[in-house]
């Protein structure tokens, strides 16, 4: 007599938990979704994976002209391009992960209405794609640094994965929230690029956080991305370490956003197929 097979009980009540265990069960699928996107995105484009380099490069040039040349932004001993690129890499990891996750349910409606697996796999795999792009962009950063003669401190570089993980966690938290919200409120889909743009200018991407007037600083630091970007920049080019409190705040925000996001996601998850 074989073991009694598992019994699946399907009821009207939503299931308990945050879905993390279920997400672990579909980890292979989640990874492969990301791989599918990466593989297919650059197929049949002339530049291929070069786009992952070109996007931060172009943004860096724009920032260089606007902030560095016209705005004459002072960035201490560090050349402005290196300064801007280090901010941009962290920011683009965050923004493309958030955008991708936000759209992930809407753009996978076909799957959503035809087959069931843990739905968290959609936003999470979308954030993973952004990580791959960030890795490619890090290569660009290394080249630009060598070219401008800025050497990173090896000890600080060791902290880089931790800081990137922090940026990733923040993005995943916001992304999970947005994924569920965008599916229900399609208006958000159009508002999202605008929101991201505003968010970028209220984060220290093209300028150092120290340039923010003191009376605004407290409000400014409520943006958890501030601490994460400053910390990332510090691992790359050194200078003053960002205040510990802002990094801790970013970590706390990431944790809170992700758990509440997952809880909200679970709450509305059962209606996804009906509103998709």
């Amino acid at each position: 007599m074989p073991d009694a097979p598992p019994v699946l009980r399907i009821t009207a009540e939503r299931r308990s938990g945050l879905g993390f265990v279920e997400l672990w069960h579909v980890r292979e699928l989640t990874l492969f979704f990301a791989l599918r996107e990466i593989k297919s995105r650059y197929r049949q484009t002339v530049l291929g994976v070069g786009w992952a380099v070109l996007q931060p490069l172009m943004a860096m040039l724009v920032f260089y002209v606007v902030f560095g040349r016209i705005g004459k932004m002072a960035t201490g001993s560090v050349p402005y391009p290196v300064f801007a690129l280090s901010g941009l890499i962290a920011w683009q990891l965050f923004s493309s992960a958030v955008t991708g996750a936000g759209q992930s349910l809407v753009s996978n409606q076909g799957l959503l209405t035809k087959v069931y697996f843990e739905r968290l796999a959609f936003p999470v795999s979308a954030t993973l794609i952004a990580v791959v792009d960030a890795m490619v962009a890090l290569g660009l950063l290394a080249i630009v640094m060598v070219w401008s003669g800025v050497a990173p401190d090896p000890l600080r570089v060791l902290a880089m994965p931790l800081v990137l993980a922090l940026v990733f966690a923040l993005a995943a938290g916001v992304g999970v929230w947005l994924a569920a919200l965008v599916l229900r409120f399609r208006d958000l889909r159009h508002a999202l690029p605008l929101l991201i743009q505003l968010w970028m200018f209220t984060s220290p991407v093209g300028y150092p956080a120290s340039r923010v007037p003191a009376e605004w600083r407290l409000l400014y630091d409520l943006n958890p991305v501030v601490g994460a970007i400053e910390a990332f920049r510090w691992t790359v080019i050194g200078g003053d370490a960002p205040p510990m409190i802002s990094v801790v705040w970013a970590a706390v925000a990431a944790l809170v956003l992700f758990t509440t996001g997952a809880a909200f996601f679970q709450r509305v998850e059962r209606t996804f197929a009906d509103i998709a």
């Binding site: 959503l112 087959v115 059962r270 197929a273």
Partner: peptide
């Protein structure tokens, strides 16, 4: 499990394979 029931329940014993369309994904 694509959509949730409004009332009542169903129990399925064993591994479920669902084929609601071919070529999903």
């Amino acid at each position: 499990r694509v959509t949730a029931p409004t009332e009542g329940y169903a129990e399925v014993r064993g591994r479920v394979g669902s084929l609601l369309e071919v070529g999903t994904g």
